[in-house]
């Protein structure tokens, strides 16, 4: 069975600017995947590409095994979307709005269906409330109900918990978890709230500057936290494959004067640094990155976590201190 969403090597240009360079992402049925990244990393553009709203330069996007640009209109009904801004209509009641949306999705629903949907998101007491009179939290929940109106097999949510109080947030996360586990819905949750990700996500992808810098099961990525090191560099890094005792040293991220590397499970750090220095890496300082999702996120996206003690200082002549 085809994955609800698979993106590989996605490169997207907006005007004359390339906004996505190399994005990969997969969302399986029954799985909640978190899409993380700083503002401007390309999350919303990735969602637009997933929905077939823009044409990629290279790479491919597959929605249920089909290219969304060529897929039939009906295929889009299999996807529910909660965008960052809800875009609701102020002059309609919640019930009328959901019935209108069901018609657009080609799956009209009656009053019972509306009641069930509103109940699912906790708005069952307000079917006849004008959306203009809804609070921010109610609007978010109505946007979620709108996404569920056609019984989607893939649910894409962009910052869905914005404006929700803690109880509403917990309720929504519980709903996402239920949808994935009980109905086999694939969920792509795009959020800045790492607590939400830790609570419900099975898998994450981290975007930074238009690239996927990490992608995989959340527990696997968290488990490797102790093997990530931030290197302060005195110059540029030579372009060559890195191997220390046959175990790769992965270059996760590089900025001006800094690099984030992940060592293989059995690689002794001192051995790795010597090998890198020998290969021409101008390493000046090495710091171990902290564990946990926040540290992982910060290190992957180029921001510094709270400083950890330096594990090695490198003298100008290459000796480890």
């Amino acid at each position: 069975m085809a994955l609800p969403l698979l993106i590989e090597g996605l490169r997207v240009r907006r005007g004359f600017r390339t906004v996505l360079h190399d994005v990969r992402l997969r969302v399986a049925a029954g799985e909640v995947c978190g899409l993380l990244g700083p503002n401007g990393a390309g999350k919303t553009t990735t969602i637009a590409a997933a929905l077939g709203l823009l044409v990629p330069e290279t790479g491919h996007v597959r929605l249920f095994g089909e290219d969304p640009l060529d897929a039939s209109d009906g295929m889009r009904a299999r996807v529910g979307l909660v965008p960052e801004r809800d875009g609701l209509t102020d002059w309609m009641t919640a019930a009328d709005y959901l019935q209108y949306w069901a018609v657009l999705q080609g799956r009209p629903i009656g009053p019972e269906g509306v009641t069930a949907l509103l109940s699912e998101v906790g708005l069952d007491a307000s079917p006849d409330l004008l959306t203009a009179r809804c609070s921010q939290g109610m609007r978010r929940r109505l946007a979620v109900a709108r996404a569920l109106v056609a019984g989607p097999e893939l649910l894409i949510l962009d910052e869905p918990t914005n404006g929700l109080d803690p109880r509403g947030r917990r309720r929504l996360l519980g709903l996402l978890h239920r949808l994935a586990r009980q109905r086999g819905v694939g969920v792509l949750l795009c959020t800045h709230l790492l607590g939400d990700v830790e609570r419900v996500c099975d898998r994450i992808a981290v975007l930074a500057a238009g690239r996927t810098v990490a992608e995989g099961p959340l527990q696997d990525l968290l488990g490797r936290g102790g093997n990530r090191y931030r290197l302060r560099l005195g110059g540029s890094v030579p372009k060559m494959a890195l191997c220390v005792d046959s175990a790769p040293v992965r270059l996760l991220h590089q900025t001006q004067g800094e690099a984030l590397v992940e060592l293989g499970a059995n690689v002794a750090p001192e051995t790795a640094w010597r090998a890198l220095l020998f290969a021409g890496w101008p390493i000046q300082e090495v710091r171990r990155e902290a564990g946990g999702l926040e540290a992982l996120y910060l290190s992957l996206t180029g921001a510094r976590a709270e400083p950890q003690p330096a594990v090695a200082d490198v003298t100008p002549d290459g000796d480890l201190a």
Partner: peptide, 13 residues
């Protein structure tokens, strides 16, 4: 008047 009355209704979880 109809649209604005009660704007800001709190969540009723």
């Amino acid at each position: 008047v109809r649209g604005h009355a009660g704007t800001g209704t709190e969540d009723a979880d």
